[in-house]
Write a protein that binds this DNA or RNA. Structure first.
Lengths: 185, 185
DNA sequence: AACGATACGGAACGACCGCCCCGCTTAGCA
DNA sequence: TGCTAAGCGGGGCGGTCGTTCCGTATCGTT
């Protein structure tokens, strides 16, 4: 399994494809035709398939970095002094990114199969500690599980990515944030 | 524009198609192939097109009733004694229906174009009074608009329709309900 | 019973899209 | 500078799905 180095042009094209895919997926979600990505990268569809066996593989390559970013952020906040604001800071960052990364919910949804599964599992773990610490500190309601949280995020990321109404994203995520706090009773 | 009455078999088939479409859309969302609906109705695709000019028109016919149901419910709760529980009762009912009507978010989303637009406008109106009364009574946070509410509902209906996890739907909607209450501050 | 209008079914068309193939180009090396 | 293998492009294949067309069956009426 000795990896021979890529030829210079191949390496360059691979990079271009990844960049074009990153932008196209972010703008339009998984639905973009692959030919469009190829055109944006200035290569033929055949070249895309030289580097990625399937459209999903390309999506995964992009999503992996995307999800990994979120995981890194979650981990970075994991041992903050105040678990409550760590958790809510994470939410706020996600809300902010929702506008630009329209494929994030798709990435989370495609977890069942293939290469991102690992990253999504990592995400679940990272979210798990963030959530558990928030709950232990009494800053997050106790009856929520990680799958619940992921479902909430998936759904809300999906809608706010669609709607251009000004301020809607902020308000929607404010509702989420407040709804995730312990109920007043 | 004199409407001549349909032939008996035509009328029967139209009914069957509508019933099959209702079930198919509810189960799988707008994505179901039209041929599948036709097969379920025991007719050929051509027959479907005799009654509905396009797949979207069929979807609209089904969605119209679906959305109208929600509108009726919202209106029925509009002049309840307690605006707060009227509002939350509406939410609860929607959460309950979310499992069975997988096409509801699609219906809400397709509002921009065509025949359901009117029904969706009615829904906005009905939601408007429900929301305004809840806010006036101090039972619902004041910084939320009808489009915000629709976005929240659309997103959450979408995810809870996908996930079979037990109890997830209830917890997700509990978060929504609590998040929509006025913040404690 | 027979006729004309109405409706039916499903084969077929065309658009779209993921994916493959193969003749040509180009990088890398001697 | 020439040779070889790596890489490229884009035409094309196959499958899916919405939609149309038309020969046939059926209804409703005379």
């Amino acid at each position: 399994m000795a990896e021979r180095p890529l030829r210079a042009d191949a390496r360059r094209n691979r990079e271009r494809v990844l960049a074009a895919a990153d932008e196209a997926f972010a703008d339009h979600g998984f639905g973009v035709p692959l030919d469009e990505i190829a055109a944006a990268a200035g290569v033929g569809p055949g070249t895309v398939y030289r580097h990625f066996p399937t459209k999903e593989a390309l999506f995964e390559a992009v999503s992996l970095a995307r999800v990994q970013d979120v995981v890194d952020d979650a981990r970075a906040r994991a041992d903050a002094a105040d678990p409550g604001s760590a958790f809510e800071g994470f939410l706020a960052r996600l809300a902010e990114e929702a506008g630009r990364k329209r494929d994030l919910p798709d990435a989370l949804a495609g977890a069942g199969a293939h290469g991102i599964a690992g990253a999504v599992a990592e995400l679940h773990d990272a979210l798990g500690v963030l959530l558990a610490r928030g709950q232990a500190a009494g800053a997050v309601r106790g009856d929520i599980t990680v799958p619940d949280l992921v479902a909430l995020l998936k759904g809300l990321l999906h809608t706010v990515g669609t709607d251009p109404e000004p301020g809607l994203r902020q308000r929607v995520f404010a509702v989420l944030r407040d709804g995730l706090r312990p109920p007043v009773e």
